[in-house]
C-alpha cells in the first residue's frame, strides 16, 4: 500500500466518522423540529414519518398563543402562560448572568493581578458549582419563605449567581491572564486609578472573552430546571418548568406541543451558540492551556 492510498483511507475514515457523528447529533434535533410542525395524527406512527407532507403551524399557535381548535380562546388563555414564562426566563437569565459575570470578572482580575484568592481557594470555588442543587432545595425553601423570597425573581437570581460564579471566575481569568502586565503599568504611569485601569484598559481587551463567558452562563441559567421548579410558585414561571407541564394524559403525551415549545426554548440558545462558537474554545480551557 503506498502512501497515497493510505492517506485516502485515513481521509475516508475521518469523513465517515464525521458524517456519522453529524447524523447522530443532528437527527434528534431534526426530529424535534419536524415534530413541532406535524399535525397530531403524525406525532406517533409506525412506520415513523420522517418527512411530513402536512406541515402545520397549529402546534405553535396552541402553545405560544393559546389558540386551540377545540375550546374557546378564553379558556385556553387562563391555563398556560408561555409568554409570561418567556418573559421571566429572559429576565432571570439576563439579570443573573450579568451579575455573575460582573462579580466573576472582578474577582478574576483580583486573582490574576493581586492573588486575592490562593490557588487552593480558586479550586475550592469550583466546589460551589459541584454541589448538586437538589441538596439544598428543601432548606432553601424554608429559608426563602421566611425572607419572603420564595416565588420571586430575586430569590432565584441569588441562587443562580452563586452557582455560576465559579465558572465565570475561571473562564474570565484565563482571558485576563493573557494580557501582559505592561499594559496596566503603562496606565498606572499615566495616572489611572485601579478602577479606571480595569474599565478602560483591561475590559476592552477581554471583551470578546467576557461575551463568550456571558453567553455560556446564559445557557446554564436559561436551562436550569430543578431550582426553578421548587423555588417558584404562582408569580414566577420559567420555560423549562412550563415545558414539563405538557404531559397530557387522556390525549397521550402531546409531542407536537412539547416540540413546539421546545424549539422556542432551544432556538435562542442555538442562535447564541453560533455567535460564540469561536470564543467558546478560548473560554473553555480554564487556564489549563497556554497560548
Amino acid at each position: 500500500m503506498n502512501r497515497r492510498t493510505k492517506r485516502r483511507i485515513a481521509a475516508a475514515f475521518r469523513f465517515g466518522f464525521l458524517g456519522a457523528s453529524l447524523f447522530a447529533v443532528g437527527f434528534p434535533i431534526y426530529w424535534m423540529i419536524i415534530t413541532s410542525f406535524k399535525p397530531d395524527n403524525e406525532w406517533f406512527t409506525w412506520p415513523p414519518i420522517y418527512w411530513s407532507e402536512n406541515w402545520t403551524l397549529d402546534n405553535y399557535r396552541v402553545v405560544w398563543l393559546g389558540i386551540q381548535a377545540r375550546i374557546t380562546a378564553q379558556e385556553a388563555f387562563t391555563m398556560q402562560k408561555p409568554l409570561q414564562a418567556l418573559k421571566h426566563s429572559l429576565a432571570l437569565a439576563l439579570i443573573s448572568t450579568t451579575l455573575s459575570v460582573a462579580f466573576g470578572t472582578l474577582i478574576a482580575y483580583g486573582v490574576s493581578r493581586y492573588r486575592i484568592l490562593s490557588d487552593r481557594r480558586m479550586f475550592n470555588l469550583l466546589m460551589l458549582r459541584m454541589i448538586p442543587p437538589i441538596v439544598v432545595a428543601a432548606p432553601l425553601t424554608l429559608y426563602y419563605s421566611a425572607l419572603n423570597l420564595l416565588d420571586t425573581l430575586t430569590g432565584l437570581v441569588i441562587v443562580y449567581v452563586i452557582t455560576t460564579i465559579p465558572y465565570t471566575v475561571w473562564m474570565t481569568k484565563s482571558f485576563i491572564d493573557e494580557i501582559p502586565h505592561e499594559m496596566e503599568q503603562a496606565a498606572e504611569i499615566l495616572g489611572a486609578s485601579r478602577w479606571q485601569t480595569i474599565w478602560e484598559v483591561i475590559f476592552p481587551l477581554i471583551r470578546s472573552g467576557v461575551v463568550a463567558t456571558f453567553l455560556f452562563i446564559l445557557i446554564l441559567t436559561w436551562s436550569e430546571y430543578l431550582l426553578a421548579l421548587i423555588l417558584s410558585k404562582v408569580d414566577v414561571v420559567t420555560l423549562p418548568v412550563q415545558l414539563s407541564k405538557y404531559e397530557g394524559t387522556t390525549e397521550g403525551r402531546v409531542y407536537g406541543y412539547q416540540a413546539a415549545l421546545a424549539v422556542g426554548v432551544t432556538l435562542p440558545l442555538i442562535v447564541i451558540g453560533c455567535f460564540i462558537r469561536k470564543h467558546l474554545v478560548r473560554g473553555f480551557t480554564f487556564g489549563m492551556v497556554k497560548r
Binding site: A138, T141, L142, Y144, S145, L150, D151, I230, K233, V234
Partner: peptide, 11 residues
Amino acid sequence: MAEAISRSGKF
C-alpha cells in the same frame, strides 16, 4: 406538601 414547609398561604 411543599406548602407545609413554606406555609405561605398563597394558594
